[in-house]
């Protein structure tokens, strides 16, 4: 532990917090640490260190895959999107040094790549691979997840994407607007329409 007065005061303040607040504090600290690691990996890749791609993948691939899967509805397309994002990252690394929010930047690339993939495929039949899976291998939850997946697949792609980014990636509406290239109000509206419809269909009373 540091002997600096500020550090001692901070430790005391955390120790006196209620358990829930302390847990939120720890979560926030983890988020900040992850963001700092991602920014460091971006800086390393910007100067040509290709080994930095691995940590970037580990930090963001789950979010990227989820976003692409919820946008395209197809696991195959989502995998292509993730690959495309990393190809784009490696093809023009010099711009990465100026990126302020690496996670939002990657998600914006994912959104753009997903739109491109959908445009290229020109599907006549909407893909509807499962976008949700149960946390535990429990038959009841598995059935719920399968049903929820089907209902999510029935939403328009833009609403699905907004719900995913808000609910699972934890982005603010302003960040969702930045990622998907729409005003904050539109992002919030898409989320509320999507989540409202899902809640109604799933019979969840708020």
């Amino acid at each position: 532990m540091s002997d600096e007065p500020g550090a001692v005061e901070f430790s005391c303040a955390v120790a006196t917090l209620p358990p829930v607040e302390a847990a939120r504090g720890a979560e926030l600290e983890t988020d900040l640490s992850a963001a700092a690691s991602l920014a460091a990996a971006f800086a390393a890749l910007a100067v040509g260190d290709l080994d930095a791609i691995g940590p970037i993948y580990d930090a963001c691939a789950a979010d990227l895959f989820g976003l692409a899967l919820w946008r395209t509805g197809s696991r195959e397309d989502a995998a292509d999107v993730v690959q495309e994002v990393f190809v784009r990252l490696a093809s023009a690394p010099s711009a990465l040094g100026r990126v302020r929010n690496p996670r939002a930047y990657l998600l914006a690339m994912g959104h753009s790549a997903a739109v491109d993939v959908l445009r290229r495929r020109k599907r006549t039949v909407e893909a509807d691979d499962a976008v949700l899976e149960p946390v535990r291998p429990d038959p009841v939850t598995a059935a719920d997840a399968a049903r929820a997946s089907r209902l999510v697949s029935g939403l328009p792609a833009a609403q699905r994407e907004a719900v995913y980014l808000r609910h699972f990636a934890g982005l603010s509406f302003a960040e969702i607007g930045g990622v998907t290239g729409v005003p904050t109000f539109t992002a919030a509206s898409r989320y509320r329409l999507g989540i409202g419809r899902l809640r109604k269909l799933m019979g969840v009373v708020r």
Partner: peptide, 22 residues
């Protein structure tokens, strides 16, 4: 709304494939 559920995970081989392409 999504209690007990999580987004579908990426396929296992995707990491190698994406890093190789990059």
């Amino acid at each position: 709304l999504f209690s007990g559920m999580k987004p579908a995970a990426a396929p296992a081989g995707l990491r190698d494939r994406a890093l190789r392409a990059a």
